[in-house]
Write a protein that binds this DNA or RNA. Structure first.
Length: 765
DNA sequence: GAAAGTGGTCTTTTT
DNA sequence: GACCACTTTC
């Protein structure tokens, strides 16, 4: 066959080749972890461009993150030519949605009442709107939690239900409440000329409904459609893709039911399970051979995922060498876990053969990153944290961005309130004045920004004839100041680049004054503000008329992973398991492999009546395990501080299925005893420890821990014959000893060697 | 009206 | 333990 020698097919196995060349009709690729699906996607698109002469703009590829899209684009460029890939439509569902809305500003305004300068609200903005809606409905935001309402609203939107649909379908009192809030929330969002994330999917569909010709246009354009991570799509995404693919039926989806980890975000696994029923004549291709990981890692992953009941049995396998055994290490608490991780990474990198950027540390909750970060900061090992408190969500960054957003969309009352509450120019303008201003704006059908600018005497042509809002006293002075400021900025906006506008904003808002205390915190915050300016310079080459739109859009749609900058390599990556999906690292540490954390306690609590959350937790662990290429470390702690309180924990049940042939465990000899002691005081006990021990052999601690020493923990009360009683503040594991730091009631802080000082444990709460 | 103090909630994961 | 929202105090 001629095709077998084609350069785009060399190096691909038979199944992968089939996926590349089966260009027409529906194709379902079930791709196990590390089976080369990205390769298949890039080669296939290159194949379409080169071999089938498909114009790039006829090819759509939807990925889970923008980063994945960009990387694919780069790889395709290398396969074809620099220019041949220009015009490919690639990005997330959300960016596709924005694209459709932005390409049709006139229709959007006429048909769905969305003005072209709409803003994309983030979660914090959404919470504000939801809270207002709740209050407006005469309900108490403390009882009716905005977050819960938002999750109900998001679910409704994911299922394309309007507020009226929710009202009609309401099955419970809760549903009725959600419906009421949803109604009001929507009304407010439209008033603010803002959309939320879900709207980016639902509004394009509403546009298509209102104007079928528009849909036909896109249907005609996208002759070849690809969707990655199909197992994590929700109902709206499914409908959008189905609609777009209707004409040509060339729909290529890639996914893995075992890696579905977003059901909580309304992802619907039946999308992938029913694909063959939806599309008659589907070609299904299974990619099972794992090229990424060692034999031991693949075996562990396989055994792990087999424990899920709700699953299609599908093996994963590899021909790679077995490699090192997986290392399971149990530590006393989260601090020990962190220092073990850092010490081990230091040991690994010291040889020079392993670089810090070969390593990732993964965890279930963002809260876990803090202790880890502290340990890294104390060490000399470079690291970076993906996610956590995101850059664009930092207070100081959001404050400055609020100015830009308000200049872009003067209806953005939420942003205006932020500016007034958080920046010096808002001083003196209280809630009462705000109320008057908003009433005025409503009455005159003008924006609150107009109302303020009118107070700036010389600068408001065209608005002078109107009566001013009846703002009096200090607030009036304040309104004049804010009005003048906004007037200046509004004028600058027309002609300035983003960084010039930034300087004007910082200058005129006196924002810097807030950071004059010279504390470390202030310096950091100011540095973040500066970083924002640098960030904006990226857009300085653009025309001022489009720069702001594009910048604000990019800010709203970047994901944590998108923000990963591969150019500043050389750092260990700290990342949540969710964000790690799709990535790979030679060496992976997974921290907190404990009951309550992985699986998360919420899933454990639901277990008796709903097994699904627990199985999703297992899939999440599976995703983590399969990120590792050469070496995998699992760590867990015997006790851990949550909510500022100590709680003892047990190794995760997920470990129980992993055979000893592939995993070596080093645990604390007394772990069972101390865990049990901790459980006696309240927490429900399970038989998990027993189960874990029956399948995984817990090797004797060997020389790694001196067994005779008492099990000192932070916050424990201890007694010393000379110094009296005190609290343990730190425990450092040494080779055959421990160094214990104790804050004595009468003698202050002392550092003692556990083997020498006769320290007695008094209380362990 | 602003700063300092108090109490309650919170942690699951994210485009 | 941290953060937020709300109260008290000046």
């Amino acid at each position: 066959m001629q095709t077998e020698t084609h350069p785009l097919l060399t190096g691909l196995n038979e199944e992968q080749q089939r996926a590349v060349i089966t260009t027409d009709g529906p194709v379902l690729v079930v791709a196990g972890p590390g089976s080369g699906k990205t390769r298949v996607l890039t080669h296939r698109i290159a194949w379409l461009l080169e071999q089938k002469q498909v114009p790039p703009e006829a090819i759509l590829a939807v990925t889970f993150t923008n980063k994945a899209a960009n990387e694919m684009r780069e790889r395709i460029r290398k396969l074809v030519s620099e220019t041949a890939a220009n015009g490919l439509v690639m990005g997330t569902f959300h960016s596709l949605g924005v694209r459709i809305l932005r390409q049709n500003p006139y229709r959007a305004e006429q048909l769905i009442d969305l003005k072209p300068n709409f803003l994309i609200y983030d979660t914090a903005d959404q919470l504000n709107v939801a809270k207002e809606a709740i209050i407006n409905e005469r309900m108490d935001p403390k009882q009716i939690q905005p977050r819960r309402m938002l999750s109900g609203i998001s679910r409704a939107k994911s299922e394309m239900k309007t507020p009226t649909d929710v009202t009609n379908d309401a099955m419970s009192y809760d549903d009725e409440i959600v419906a009421r809030v949803y109604h009001e929330y929507e009304r407010r969002l439209r008033d603010l000329n803002a959309v939320d994330f879900d709207d980016l999917l639902t509004l394009p569909l509403r546009l298509f409904d209102a104007d079928p010709k528009l849909l036909e246009k896109y249907q005609a354009q996208f002759r070849y459609i690809h969707v990655d991570e199909y197992q994590d799509t929700n109902r709206v995404q499914y409908v959008m893709i189905t609609a777009l693919a209707e004409n040509w039926q060339n729909l290529f989806v890639v996914g893995d039911p075992d890696q579905s980890i977003y059901a909580w975000r309304n992802a619907d696994i039946t999308n992938i399970l029913n694909f063959r029923d939806d599309y008659q004549g589907t070609t299904q291709i299974n990619l099972e051979l794992n090229y990424r990981s060692t034999g031991h890692i693949v075996q562990a992953a396989d055994r792990l995922i087999r424990q899920n009941r709700d699953r299609i049995d599908r093996p994963i396998r590899t021909v790679n060498p077995d490699g090192e055994k997986i290392m399971l290490r149990e530590l006393a608490d989260q601090n020990h876990e962190a220092s073990f991780t850092v010490d081990e990474i230091r040991r690994l990198t010291q040889s020079g053969r392993i670089r810090p950027d070969d390593i990732a540390v993964m965890y279930r909750t963002t809260a876990q990153s803090r202790v880890l970060e502290e340990a890294f900061r104390r060490s000399e090992i470079p690291y970076r944290i993906i996610g956590g408190h995101r850059f664009y969500e930092r207070k100081e960054v959001k404050d400055i961005l609020a100015f830009f957003k308000l200049l872009y969309n003067p209806e953005d009352r939420i942003g205006l309130e932020r500016i007034i509450d958080n920046t010096p120019i808002g001083r003196g303008f209280g809630p009462r004045a705000m109320e008057v201003l908003l009433d005025w704006a409503q009455q005159h059908q003008l924006s609150p920004v107009d109302g303020l600018i009118m107070h700036a005497p010389s600068i408001s042509p065209g608005l002078k004839d109107l009566a001013l809002p009846e703002i009096t006293g200090t607030a009036r002075k304040s309104a004049e100041r804010i009005g003048a400021t906004l007037a200046i900025l509004r004028e600058r906006r027309e002609t300035s680049t983003l960084s010039e506008l930034f300087d004007a904003i910082v200058d005129v808002s006196e924002y810097r004054d807030q950071f004059r205390n010279g504390t470390e915190d202030d310096l950091q915050r100011w540095a973040n503000v500066q970083e924002l300016r640098t960030d904006m310079e990226r857009f300085d080459t653009l025309d001022p008329s489009v720069a702001l739109t594009q910048y604000l859009e990019s800010v709203s749609l970047v994901s944590d992973v998108d923000a990963m900058d591969d150019s500043d390599a050389g750092q260990v990556t700290l990342i949540t398991l969710h964000s790690a999906k799709g990535l790979e690292f030679p060496i992976v540490f997974i921290a907190g492999v404990e009951e309550g954390l992985l699986p998360i306690s919420r899933a454990v609590e639901a277990e008796s009546f709903d097994r699904k959350p627990l199985e999703e937790e297992r899939r999440l662990f599976y995703v983590g395990v399969t990120r590792a290429k050469h070496q995998l470390y699992l760590t867990c702690a015997t006790s851990r501080i949550t909510y500022g309180r100590f709680a003892s924990s047990e190794p995760s049940r997920f470990l129980s299925g992993i055979p000893t042939e592939v995993m070596k465990s080093v645990t604390r000899r007394d772990s069972v005893g101390s865990a049990r002691a901790g459980r006696m005081s309240g927490r429900s006990s399970g038989s998990l420890a027993g189960r874990v021990h029956s399948t995984v052999s817990f090797d004797p601690p060997a020389q790694l821990e001196a067994p005779v020493l008492p099990d000192f923990k932070v916050a424990q009360q201890v007694f010393h014959s000379k110094f009296g009683t005190g609290l343990v503040t730190e425990v450092i594991e040494l080779n055959n000893d421990k160094e214990v730091a104790v804050e004595f009631q009468r003698h202050g802080k002392k550092r003692l060697m556990a083997s020498l000082a006769k320290l007695e444990i008094v209380e362990s709460d």
